[in-house]
Design a protein around this nucleic acid. Sequence first.
DNA 1: TTGTAAGCGTTATCAA
DNA 2: TTGATAACGCTTACAA
Lengths: 363, 363
Amino acid sequence: MDFRGPKCYPIDFCIYFCYTLCMMKSKKVTFADIAAYTNFSKTTISRYFNNPDSLTLENQQKIADALVALDYKENKVGRILASGKTEFVGILIPNLYMHYYAEMLNQILATYETYGYKFLVFAGHEKKDVERKYIEELLAYNIEGMIVLSPTISSEELAAYNIPIVGIEREDRCICSVNTDNYMGGVQAASLLKKCGCDIFIHINADLSKGVPAYGRIQGFVDICEEYHLLHELIFTDLSSSFEENRTKLFQIVENLEEKYPLKKKGIFMPNDTHANVLLNILIQKYGELPSTYRIVGFDNSPISSEAVIPTSTVGQQIPVIAREAMELLSMQMTERKKRKPTPLAEPIHKIIPPVLICRETT
Amino acid sequence: MDFRGPKCYPIDFCIYFCYTLCMMKSKKVTFADIAAYTNFSKTTISRYFNNPDSLTLENQQKIADALVALDYKENKVGRILASGKTEFVGILIPNLYMHYYAEMLNQILATYETYGYKFLVFAGHEKKDVERKYIEELLAYNIEGMIVLSPTISSEELAAYNIPIVGIEREDRCICSVNTDNYMGGVQAASLLKKCGCDIFIHINADLSKGVPAYGRIQGFVDICEEYHLLHELIFTDLSSSFEENRTKLFQIVENLEEKYPLKKKGIFMPNDTHANVLLNILIQKYGELPSTYRIVGFDNSPISSEAVIPTSTVGQQIPVIAREAMELLSMQMTERKKRKPTPLAEPIHKIIPPVLICRETT
DNA sequence: TTGTAAGCGTTATCAA
DNA sequence: TTGATAACGCTTACAA
């Protein structure tokens, strides 16, 4: 279509124009159409969007009117190609089954209002090759940065992609990251159980490597126990299997504890709220209530902790804060990278977000 | 960079080449580079990717080698611009706080392996204007289709965008959709409670409009009750507020029921598993167990139903099936649309997925 | 303040 | 089987 012509249009043209407009429903209006319609150049139209102040008010108005008349819809693909800026951020998440990841994604998505970045989301289910493939795909779309919640690929390998990356609650030696202060979480949990007057302090967790942030929970818990010379025990067990299997394992652990510490008041710090809830339910089914010889603290402050039969005390992660900080950290790197002479970070930045202890009815 | 030259390269060139390769780490290798390097045209390189059989095996190999030598990374933005195919699908979801939405997104993302579509995800939190803005943004990236879980914008308005759309569990008069067979769900719930020998059949739900699929649950429940002349009662109450408020409301409802039907065996069909769990916990805290005069059925089969103190019976939604069918339906429309002479659907297609009754310990 | 023209990295259409 | 050339829709020097 070509609207080039006199400023005043004869009726024939109007008819043609209407016709064209109808046809256009399927086609698409481009800067070229607007330029022809307004008798400006494509450049001027582009400027209207990117630097409107460089046009006279009158001409701004003309173009604005044309946009409405032609029902222009922007097409960002051309802009990406020409400018290289996609405003895409890739997200690599293990799954959305666990509430922690879902809520984190929720909060990350919410930062769209602040930063305007769009999110391409992939759930890798912790399969290394699959996740590598996803990263390649993301890179092919010229994402400007990536947020990685998945623990699978080493930070070293991630760093080699040479794009802005922020890790959340994962091994982060070579990349920027935002983590909960897990150590403080362990400290808070132990302190709370101590305040409850427990005799024996128990922490159940997987046998984590020191590289992952969550290891801090174990350390913090143990440090407090040792500082105050509290009788304590770490129970390492893999609770990543099915709900039923976990239940069986925890049931056995309870049996063992009751045999080993029959009369003691047991303070148990669980690795997350889901498992805290399983433990709680085992006790409720056994005793009809939470015996006063048991105190329980979970981790995360996920919905299950407040929705449990007995609302459960927990070390709450500040997911909205973590998401915001992660985006801030990423945005900083991405902005830096767009400069003519970018100065990459000398060292990865690691932000630590304090947890919030939430006391409910199990302590 | 320009590799055009003899097929055999002098050492100087090799040095230059290595140098260039190093420089390239930041730049990007394009078809032009590969073409120059291999002495083919850009067209041939393009064909290597899109229609390799049209090249001789020998030449395929040459190009394959060049890709490795130059460390080529595909750039899909150019392809999009030239072909108009983005392979992007937009997802409009209310939130990821509720497990139902999170798991649905999870399953939709998993279809990447089958269809290859990438997902741009927005959480609209049921704000109409915000969601409209998100749709505009999605459209600006030339998404090929959209999956809408959010109930906010009418199907009429959605249909006017004139792109392939599939709605999930929402009003769907003017768009394709995939829904659970809510009516059958209501029937199953009522039948299960009947089998338990209940005297009074109660369904608690919001006062839904007939347009939304979930209305079927009420209808199915009532129809069975009437067919078998069962004493029944619908209790309409808004349970969309905070956990604590919902708890208070349900507590009051329990009090009322016990006053109204003191000796009867009450079969209660809850609108979802979260609320079924709240009800269950209220009863457990009141009686230390689930009294035999109460039978409970939830809806969704979300984790809370199996993780509750007493694993709760529920009408399970087949989320993986729904997600797959939705993508299939969308993919069909998107494929049709890419044809030279597309035949749009005469009528929106509505798929109905049967629920699966899951009997646990509350019935 | 506005316009011209050259890209950006592919694909599509011819023609050879 | 291959190549030249023109899109695709926008941005960005540079010029006017």
